[in-house]
Design a protein around this nucleic acid. Structure first.
Lengths: 309, 309
DNA sequence: TGAAAATAATGAGTTTGATTCAAATTTATT
DNA sequence: AATAAATTTGAATCAAACTCATTATTTTCA
């Protein structure tokens, strides 16, 4: 072609990720590349079209007209590419699998439902189901083949299981805005000693507040109260009946509406990784990997505060 | 990304060109690559998605479902990419140019009009005009700066002019279907000695039948009759008033309707290249190169029998 | 404001993937 | 069956894209 810019899909993916994350570092993590790679890539593209694509001086980068034009293109193309690739996978993979799921992290319903909706459109023949029981250990069930996919934040080592990281999130403490701890920038373990902790009804070790924060400091809360629903937890917190630790993205939508504030757990905060656990034999299966891919995309698109890998 | 096929725009361009040309050789020429490159490229892609994209055993390749799916994608994406690149060029290039055109090949109106229509949508500020006079030499006018673009099939050497090849076409002899020469597979120069040649009213040397076919064999036709309109030429041929030589693509649409047949000129046929002539200073100017690009695309899309470069 | 941390840019070197070349193989043509 | 055309293949080449290590810039916060 004569008037060639030499635009490639990777350019569009980069710009797309850059807008979504707001920084090269994060975008790079999302794309499994180095920040340097993206920097070079964009610079090269800019030199070819003879213009800047975004203004670097601002914190979330501000895109120029040219950059915005390419983002528009990315928004048009990438989904179409995605659909085509799904179609090809289905054509090739052929076999329709089974997808019995369970979640360990109860807040996950929030993004799991939209994920399933999107996924079902392209894999109509995949049989999906939920193991909704609250009181059994999903990972052993996965090993035994009763389940096919488990969303979990603490991998349990096993040769037959494979853990694919979905994203990272921060565990925050939710407190009433009238709570004395609002005075503090971040929470120390001993701050929680006089508090009533509201948690999901799962084993102690499964909860990151205990496992990664209070237990290491050898601190116990005044009391523990378990509730099954996130919304109810927040009601209790708002009405000063206790405090609770929840993922930042699960809290995000309630911060404005309710009388709740959040604080970091420890100076650096507690960061967790959410994984999709599957049996090793399923690794690489198109219908499976595509579900995970869809899940990731859904999360990054809908959840505030989550980070790649 | 997890379930990555690694599809690239170059794959889509290749498939697209393959469908348009019907063979790897031609597709490669269209993309300015070797046919080997395309072969490797496709094979690699096929191995990644685990299926064949087209059946090679047939003359025009028959695409598989997977191949068709990718072609659908190509039809969606490539135009969008094209538009975006045009927008970027315009954003960058800024200056709106002038485009005074002239054609030496009279049949060219057929594709020039659609080209201009498409082009104007994206370069509304470029001022376009035609030098429609039939009896002046366009190339000198181009040198003098009176024109900006000339469509010609015989370049005249000059340091300040640049020739960009658009496509190749075959010059065919059009004869009545009751004409005795229909007996022959292909035409020899001496076959034309007793014939009345119908031509456009331009200089003898400018006509490929004479320059490349009869002159070298030192043969003259019985008589020469000039007409300005292609359609009238064909009417005369059909009613046995003479024969004429025209580009294959100009003839294509009349072959079914009228009582006309065509024959190759010489065993191998006469192949001509059509060029866009511009002043060297304009080479690389976005608005100019993009016009030429649009012209090429229009031709390949609308004209039967033309070949890349 | 100045020091430390985070983020981005840069240059050199490396890797990977894409392309070419030359030769072999297959397919079409006479 | 023989020749020509198109395609495939493998090895070598080339260039784009990436990483690593370093420097520069920006942001944060004491």
């Amino acid at each position: 072609m004569t008037s060639q810019i030499g635009l490639g899909l990777h350019h569009l993916k980069t710009l797309h990720a850059l807008r979504q994350t707001g920084s090269l570092v994060e975008a790079a993590r999302m794309l499994h590349l180095t920040q340097s790679a993206l920097s070079h890539q964009i610079k090269e593209l800019e030199s070819r079209i003879g213009m800047e694509l975004f203004v670097r001086k601002t914190k979330p980068p501000r895109f120029t007209t040219a950059g915005l034009r390419l983002l528009t293109l990315a928004d048009e193309l990438l989904p179409q590419v995605r659909l085509a690739e799904q179609d090809l996978l289905r054509l090739a993979g052929g076999e329709s699998g089974r997808l019995n799921m369970a979640i360990e992290c109860h807040s996950c319903f929030q993004w799991l439902m939209p994920t399933i909706d999107r996924y079902r459109e392209h894999w109509p023949e995949v049989e999906m189901d939920f193991a909704s029981s609250f009181n059994f250990a999903p990972l052993p069930a996965l090993s035994r083949g009763e389940l096919d996919l488990v969303i979990t934040s603490d991998p349990m080592n096993s040769p037959e299981l494979e853990y694919i990281p979905l994203f990272q999130y921060e565990m925050l403490l939710a407190i009433s805005r009238r709570h004395p701890l609002t005075e503090k920038e971040w929470i120390e373990p001993k701050d929680l000693e006089p508090e009533i902790m509201i948690t999901y009804p799962v084993e102690h070790e499964r909860l990151a507040v205990f496992r990664d924060f209070m237990d290491p400091a050898n601190i116990e809360p005044e009391a523990i109260r378990t509730v099954e629903l996130t919304l109810m937890m927040l009601q209790l917190v708002a009405s000063q009946r206790g405090v609770c630790a929840l993922p930042n993205w699960a809290l995000a939508e309630y911060l404005d509406k309710s009388h709740i504030q959040t604080r970091k757990l420890g100076e650096k905060g507690i960061w967790c990784t959410l994984y999709a656990a599957i049996r090793t034999e399923h690794k690489g299966q198109p219908y499976m990997m595509d579900f995970i891919e869809t899940a990731k995309e859904t999360c990054f698109a809908r959840l505030n505060g989550v980070r790649p890998v």
